[in-house]
Simulated assay, not measured.
Amino acid sequence: MSESFQATNAASNKRPLEDDTEALSTTQAKKARDDAPELVRDEEFWYEDGTIILVARNVEFRVYKGVLADHSSVFADMFSLPQPASTSARTTPAEIPVVYLEDSPEDLRHILRALLPKKSALVKFVAEDPSFHEISAEARLGHKYQIDALFNRSLSYLKECFPTDFDARQKWLKDHNNNQVPVEWGVHGAMVFAIGVVNIARLAQVDTILPSALAVCCCLDAKQLVKGFEREDGSRERLSEEDLELCITGMRRLAHEASVAVVTEFARFILPNGCTGEADCQNAINQLLSDYGDNSEPYFPFKNPFRDWDDWITEYWEEEVELEEDAVCETCSAKVLKGFRVQQRDTWKRLPDIFDLHVKDWPI
C-alpha cells in the first residue's frame, strides 16, 4: 500500500471521528439541558420591575442589580459582563439579563433579605438575634461577594458570642441560661452549630473565635463531632480533618484540666480560717467529691467547661440541707467556688495551647 494512500486513508478516517465527537458533544449538551430541573420563581424575591435575574440551582430571583452592585464589587464586576441567555424562556423575560450562581437558594435568600429587606424581615432582624443559618450565609457569601457590611456584621456577632475575655464569656453564658451557643439557634442539639462557627472563623481568618468555639465542639458526642450537621440546603457541614484532630486532642487535655480542678478544690480541701462547720463541712466536701465520681455523666468538661459553677454547687448543698445532711458553711462554700473560678480562668488562659493554636490577641 502506498504512503499517499495511507495518508489519504488516515485523513478520511480522522474527519468522521471529529464529526462524531462534535455530534456527541451536541447530543450531551442537549441531554444536559433536557435533564436540568425546571426553573421556578422564588416566592419571596421576584419583583416584576427587577433588572437582573439570579439563578441559584433551579430557583430564579428577580431583583435589582443596581442595589446589589452598590453593596458588592464582585456583583458589580459580574453584572458588567455579557450574560448568557436564559434556559427557561417560559418563565424568564427575554430582555432581563440572567446570572447563574453556585450558591444554594437558601443562602442567597438570606443575603437578599439583608440587602433588600422587606418590612417583616427588617423588623425581625432588629427585634431578634439571627439564626445560625442567617449568620452563616452572611459570613460565607459576604466573604465571597465582598459584601463588607454583612461580613463584618456576622463576625461582630460571633465575636460577642465567642469572646476572648473569660469574664465576658461567663456573662454571656449566664445571660443565655448556660447554653453554649445562642438560644436563638435552638436549645436541643444546637451545640453542633459550633462546627459551623469554627469553619467560619477559618474562612474569615479570625483566630480569636477558634479557642472557645473548639471548646464547645469538644462537648459534642462522637457522632455529632464526626458527622457534623445538615445545612438548610441538605448538604452537610463538617470539621476539617485538622480541626477534628484538634478537638480529639483537646478533649483529652480538657479532661486533664477537669481532674486538676477537682483534685485541687475537693480532694485537697483544707478547712479555711473562719469555718464554722468543721467536720460537717469536711464531710459535705467529701460527699460532693464522691457523688461527682459516681456520676455517669460527668459535669466537667463534657457538659460545659466554662459554666459558672456557683449555681450548680450551691443547689447541690441546698438539697443536702433539705435532706438534713451535712452541708458546708458560707466560708467553705465561698472558698470552693472561688477556687473553681480560679481553675477555670487558668484553663481559659491556656485554651489556645490546649488546641495547639497561636492566637495573638488572647489574654494571658
Results as ranks from 00 to 15, higher is better:
E237L: 11
I147G: 08
I53W: 05
S296T: 06
F61I: 03
Y292L: 11
C219M: 05
E324M: 08
I96G: 07
F355Y: 13
W362D: 12
A267L: 11
E44I: 09
K360Q: 14
N199Q: 14
K349A: 11
K124I: 01
N179H: 14
L54D: 06
D49C: 06
D49A: 08
A222N: 11
K360R: 15
I96P: 01
S290E: 14
N199K: 13
R140S: 10
T91Y: 07
A89K: 14
P305E: 06
D291F: 00
E318W: 00
V206R: 06
A121C: 00
V260W: 05
A190D: 04
G339C: 05
H110P: 00
P84T: 07
V328R: 02
N295G: 00
Y316P: 02
R57K: 15
S72W: 03
D49F: 05
V328C: 14
V126I: 15
E297Y: 11
E324R: 13
Y299K: 00
Q224Y: 02
A76V: 00
N295V: 00
A267W: 10
K174T: 14
L150H: 10
A213E: 07
G293Y: 13
R238S: 08
F75A: 02
T347W: 02
D243I: 02
T164P: 00
D175R: 07
C218E: 04
K349C: 09
C218A: 15
K223L: 09
P272T: 07
A139M: 06
A255V: 13
C332F: 10
L115G: 05
D233K: 06
D326N: 14
P301K: 09
E38V: 12
Q344P: 01
L173P: 03
S240K: 04
D308I: 07
D361T: 14
V67P: 02
F5S: 09
Q343H: 06
D77H: 10
R252H: 10
S2Q: 05
E160I: 06
R109A: 10
L220I: 09
H358G: 00
N179Q: 11
K338F: 07
D291S: 06
A137M: 04
R341M: 04
L158H: 08
V260M: 07
G293C: 14
S88H: 13
E241D: 15
P16M: 01
G196C: 06
K227A: 02
S12E: 12
P298R: 08
N152D: 14
E43F: 00
G293E: 09
N13K: 12
A255Q: 15
A190P: 02
S131K: 12
V63C: 03
R231K: 12
L203T: 11
E48Y: 03
V321D: 13
V55F: 03
R41E: 10
D103Y: 06
R33T: 08
I364T: 14
S86R: 08
S156L: 11
T249C: 09
A190R: 02
E278N: 13
I111R: 01
V321C: 03
A127G: 00
I135S: 08
I200C: 04
G250S: 03
V40S: 09
A327W: 03
I96F: 02
